[in-house]
């Protein structure tokens, strides 16, 4: 006989039970004995209270608390914002929206994405403030404290937008080829007027260098062919020449200055929005903020 066989046989001893009549009698006897010592049926509200405290005690265990916290964090970051999307700065739920947005921003690990999100949220907040202040039923003497607070908040949000724009711009400059990647300079000799283009015909490192002389020859060929084709082609050639000049000399600078334009344009629009806001032209300020939002997108 091995241990397993023995255990099976031991398990069969479960069939030994007390007499059922004794069980029932003893149950009644015990019930009367404990009733004499003050036992009673507890009320429904007390039962609910006990259930609640039992859950609270289980939930207070560190591992469980941590699990719940992580779940809340994930839920908050993914769904919290959509739940309170329509909350306005004068609503009581607005704070929940702000918290969920902060959660979402803080749980975004990519720095650029995080800045972009913060920028987007700050712009939305500023817009929400303008829309609330444009409502005459709210923006009156009775709510002057709240209005003053919202005015301050608007300035803060605009400052945040400006700050995030600067930050994003700085990070873009850092990642720009030729400036941030010294390896690139050592591997390729960049002559004046070189254009760095990433296209389908790029090399192993994903970068193709187009020589300005080669591109000029190509452009001249196009020019010759257009001259021969029709009378209109002369006009086209002029245009082509203009394009050529810009493509050879200024492509790099124009492509690199695009974010600058965005940033400068956005700063300008923000300033205008701020001025309009100060002038209490909330609808126009809101429009300007929408423009900023478009630039962010």
């Amino acid at each position: 006989m091995d241990n397993r066989e023995l255990i099976v046989k031991l398990n069969n001893l479960k069939t030994i039970n007390p007499d059922s009549a004794w069980l029932a009698n003893n149950r009644e006897l015990l019930l009367s004995q404990i009733s004499n010592s003050g036992a009673e049926n507890i009320s429904a509200w007390k039962a609910v209270l006990i259930n609640f405290s039992s859950v609270a005690r289980i939930a207070s265990r560190p591992v469980f608390s941590l699990g719940v916290f992580i779940l809340l964090l994930l839920f908050g970051s993914f769904f919290g914002r959509s739940l309170f999307l329509n909350a306005k700065p004068n609503d009581s739920l607005y704070i929940a929206k702000i918290i969920s947005e902060k959660l979402k921003v803080n749980t975004t690990f990519n720095t650029q994405e995080r800045d972009k999100l913060a920028l987007q949220f700050a712009t939305e907040h500023a817009q929400a403030i303008t829309s609330v202040l444009s409502d005459p039923t709210f923006n009156n003497e009775a709510n002057k404290d709240q209005v003053a607070k919202l005015n301050d908040n608007f300035k803060e949000e605009v400052a945040t937008v400006q700050n995030k724009f600067d930050k994003l711009d700085a990070s873009k400059k850092m990642t720009r080829p030729g400036t941030a990647n010294p390896k690139l300079n050592s591997d390729f000799t960049l002559i004046d007027d070189n254009v760095v283009i990433a296209d389908s015909a790029r090399d192993k490192q994903g970068i193709q260098l187009i020589d300005s002389a080669a591109s000029q020859i190509k452009a001249e060929e196009v020019l010759e062919s257009t001259k021969a084709s029709s009378a209109l082609s002369s006009l086209a050639a002029k245009e082509a020449k203009i394009n050529l000049a810009s493509s050879t000399g200024n492509i790099a600078s124009s492509s690199e200055s695009a974010p600058e334009v965005n940033k400068n344009g956005a700063s300008q629009i923000l300033d205008e929005a701020q001025k309009l806001f100060d002038q209490k032209d909330y609808s126009q300020a809101s429009k300007k903020l929408k423009e900023v939002e478009e630039i962010i997108k």
Binding site: I34, A39, E40, N41, I42, A47, I50, S54
Partner: peptide, 19 residues
């Protein structure tokens, strides 16, 4: 949870829980 619940009920002298 069930254990905790029964213990709390017993502490509150709940006859039903004892049975």
């Amino acid at each position: 949870f069930k254990d905790r619940q029964v213990l709390s009920r017993l502490k509150n002298r709940d006859k039903e829980a004892f049975i």
